[in-house]
Write a protein that binds this DNA or RNA. Sequence first.
DNA 1: GTAGGGTTAG
Length: 660
Amino acid sequence: MAIWCRNISSLRRSAINRQLSHLIAPYVSGQPIRCRSTKISDAPPDIRRVNKNITNLIRNGRVEDARRLFGMLTHRNTVTWNSMISGYVQQREIVKARYLFDKMPQRDVVSWNVMISGYLSCRHLEEGRKLFDEMPSRDFVSWNTMISGYAKAGKMNEALKLFNCMPDKNVVSWNAVISGFLRNGDVKTAVEYFKRMPERDSASLGALVSGLIQNEELDEAENVLYEFGESNDGTEDLIHAYNTLIAGYGQKGRAGDARRLFDKVPSYSSAQGISRKKRFERNVVSWNSMIMAYIKAGDMVSSRELFDQMTERDTFSWNTMVSGYVHASNMDEASNLFSKMRNPDVLSWNSIISGYAQTGKLELARDYFERMPQRNRVSWNSMISGCERNADYKGAIKLFMEMQQAGEKPDRHTLSSLLSVCAETVALFLGMQIHQLVSKTVIPDIPLNNSLITMYARCGAIHEARTIFDNMKFQKDVISWNAMVGGYASHGFAFEALELFELMKCLKVRPTRITFISVLNACAHAGLVEQGRLYFKSMDSEFGIKPEVEHFASLVDIVSRDGQLEEAMKVINTMPVEPDKAVWGAVLGACRVHNNVEFARIAAEALMRLEPESSGPYCLLYNMYADAGRWDDANGIRVLMETNNIRKEPAYSRMGSASS
DNA sequence: GTAGGGTTAG
C-alpha cells in the first residue's frame, strides 16, 4: 500500500495517524488507506511513494501536514529532506527550512539550491550568497538561481558579475539576465544581450516581446519579432509571441497596428505534416486578442465582424464579445449574444448581471441572478454594487444578508460597496459594523481604506476618518487625499481642509478636479476670497486642470458671498461653460443676504428656466420684493406662480406667513 | 508526476 511505516498498527492507533490517513487518502492512488496492518506492514519501503505524498501535500498548501508525515518517517532519503525544505521555502518559512537544512545528514547540490532560492525569494540576498559561496560544488541551477535572485532584486551589477564569471552559461542564464534588464527598464541592453545569445529556446523570444511591451516599447517588440521570429530557433512559439504583441497593441488602443500584425499571420498554414502546435497560423487566442483590441478601441462593429468570421469560438470569445457590449452599454446585443451561447459559464452570467445592474436595470439583473445555475462572489458583488450605484440602498443590504445566508464570504469589493451605502445614507452605526467586518476579513487595500475614510467623513465622524487616513502612511493615493480634504470641507473645517491641501502639494501629490471642488468650497465657507481666487487660478496654471462648471460655481459662490455681486456676474458672463443651477443658486442666495434685488431677479429668472417646476426662486424673489416693500413686484411673482402652476413647497413656509 | 534555475498570448 502507499504509506510505508515500520510499525503501522501502533501508528494507526494514534489520533494523528487517523487524521493523516484521512488527508493523505485522496492523494494515494485515489483510494482510502486500508487499515489492515498485515497488508501494509508487509509492503516494501517505498520512499519514492512517501516522498510523492509529501510533495502532494505541499502542493495543496498543507505543509504542516507534510511535516507531520515527515516527522513520523523512519526512512528518509535526501529527496525527502529536499522536498520538505522546498515545501517550507514555498511558504516563505525560511527559518523552518533552514532548521531542516542544518539538520539533514547529507546534502546534495539540490539541497543547497533549494535553500539558496528560499533566501532569495525572501529577499535575503546576503544569506543566499553566503550559502552560494560556501557550497562544495555548483551546477547550472545554482548559478542561475543566484543570478536571477540578483536580477529580480534589481541588482543587475551583481547579476552580471556572476553571469560573466560563470564557467558555462546555458539558455536559462541568458534568459535570466535579459529578463532582469527588462524588469529594470533597460530595454537597450536587453535587446543587445538577446542578439548575443548563442542559442534561444521557445521562451526567449516570447519573454523578450512581452518585456518590451511592458516597457511600452511596442515598435521595438515588433522589430525583434520580425528579426528573430523567422530564424530556426524559437519559432515554435512564434504565434505565442505574435499574440502577445497583438494583445499589447490592443491594450494600448492601437487596434490598427494589432490588425496589421493579425493579418501577417496566415489563417491556415500550408505546411502539412507538422503538428498543429508547431504551425505558424492563427489560433483562437489570436482571434480573441484581435476582438479585444477592437473592443478596447471602442469599435464594436469591427469586433463583431471578426467574431462572426470565427470558425472556432471558445467561451472566452463569447465572454469577450458579451462583456464588450456590456461595457458599450449595449445591453440588447449583449443579452442577444448571451442567449445564443454554448454553455455560458459563471463569467458570462456575471457580465450580463453586472451590465444590467450598472445600467440601472436592477430587476433584469435580479432576474438573471436568480436564474444562474451557479453563483460566485463576483455575482453577488455585481448585484450589490449595482444596487448601491442606483441608490437602492435597502436592496444592497438585503442582498448582503442573503449572501451571508448563502455562505458566500464578503471580499473587499463587497465591503467597499457596503461602505458606500453607509456613506450615502449617512449610516454611521452600520458603517462601524462594516468596518469591524473589514478588520476581521481582509487586509484593507488603498481603495477600501478610501471607502472607510469617505464613509466616516460623510457621517461626520471626521476624527475616525482622519485616523484611517493617517494610518495609511505612505499608502495613499489621490482619492484618499480627496476624501479627507472633501470631508473637512463639507463639515465646515475649512482650515483643516486647506492645510491638508497644502500638505498634499508639498508631498507632490497631484490634485484633481475633485480636490479643487472641495478646496474652493472650503474657501467659500470660510470667506477666503483672495485665497479662493488664487486657488482657482492655479488649477489651470499649475496643474493644467481646466475649470468646469462646478469650479465656476464655487468661484461665483466665493465672490458673491463676499458681496461682490457685480464681480460674480462678470465671472458668469465670461465663463466658457453654461452656468447651471448651482451657479445661479449661489448668486441668488448671496443676493438675498446682501439685499440686491436686481441681480436676484436675473438669477431667479435663470433658475426658473433651468428648473421650471421649482418654487424656490419664486419664493425667494417674492420675499425680497416683500421685504423691500415692493408689493407690486411681489404680487407679480405670485401671479406668475399661478400662471405657471407653481405650488409652494412646504420648505418655503416662510412665504406663507409673509403673505397672510 | 520525487526535490532545485529562466520564461511566453486572450
